[in-house]
Design a protein around this nucleic acid. Sequence first.
DNA 1: TATTGTTATACTCTATAACTATA
DNA 2: TATAGTTATAGAGTATAACAATA
Lengths: 175, 175
Amino acid sequence: MSRGLAVASGASRGGRLPRQGTSADALPEAGFEQWPEDVDFGPLADLIGYALRRAQIAIYQDFFATVGELGFTPQLFAALVLIERNPSLNQTRLGRIMGVNRAAAMAFIDRLEDMKLVAREASKSDRRSNAVVLTKLGRERLSMLVQAVREHDARASQNLTASEVSTLRRLLRKF
Amino acid sequence: MSRGLAVASGASRGGRLPRQGTSADALPEAGFEQWPEDVDFGPLADLIGYALRRAQIAIYQDFFATVGELGFTPQLFAALVLIERNPSLNQTRLGRIMGVNRAAAMAFIDRLEDMKLVAREASKSDRRSNAVVLTKLGRERLSMLVQAVREHDARASQNLTASEVSTLRRLLRKF
DNA sequence: TATTGTTATACTCTATAACTATA
DNA sequence: TATAGTTATAGAGTATAACAATA
């Protein structure tokens, strides 16, 4: 029952840094078409899950198009914020909050540690656990990132009025 | 600009079939915590993109917990529906609609073909293209699947009233 | 020149399973 | 017994880059 759940992350997930690569053949690829009018979506048009997925594809695109060049995925950004605001979280709990298991949490904490943005500190209360905390560099980068991500999020929501945005946020949280 | 976009899928994406595996150690893993009250989400709490992500994680979990055993991911299901309703779509276009490039579209069409659910038909108007169509078996499986997925989607939305669901769908589409 | 299908390749993210140390 | 961190491994999904056939 609990296995395979983090699938969701993978799913909502995804989240990979765009690669380099420049060749004549590669350029005109992709180009997501958002709800094209000449396509019949059939039962998909009625499913909240599908609308959620398409909205997420769109916002991920904007994330990478705007703050992607800073070298962060939405996941890494979220991890940094959670670590900053909750320095007492251990690795396993951090993973559970983010929808991945211990091993996957290890992977992204390793990565943030390699980037010198976070550090593991031995917990005194439970010697099995590590607390994960931001470094000074991590705090600096994060404050810049937060600003950029807020701008991205506002731009992504620009087709909605302020009250629609807050309705949307409320309904998504009730989910 | 176009590279790395399908990240979104990966992201919103994800979508992997849960594995088997049964061992004493493996059982208590994962267990996504949805908006736990003792956690400070800081700026994440205001971001539509983040609310979208968490909602998606939750609904993916429910998808796999309910219709996952039928052997389909949300992506494969969506592909089947699009193929049924739009039999003239070629592989590249189908990929663009779903947010992935040609090569990735190849992969899931190959898979559906291996499952005998779809077939490639040479297009007469453009001899470079294939039209992708459902087989008889594909139509049968899909009609069962649609029923199961509709039930899943309704259950996932059970915390919302009917009017909230339609508001949510409308706002997500405006995105 | 541009696009479609195709293939080979590499990379990211994740789960599984096992181990050790601690609870 | 159960849980935290860790590691090795495997699998899914995707992009990149090239090619031939066709437009």
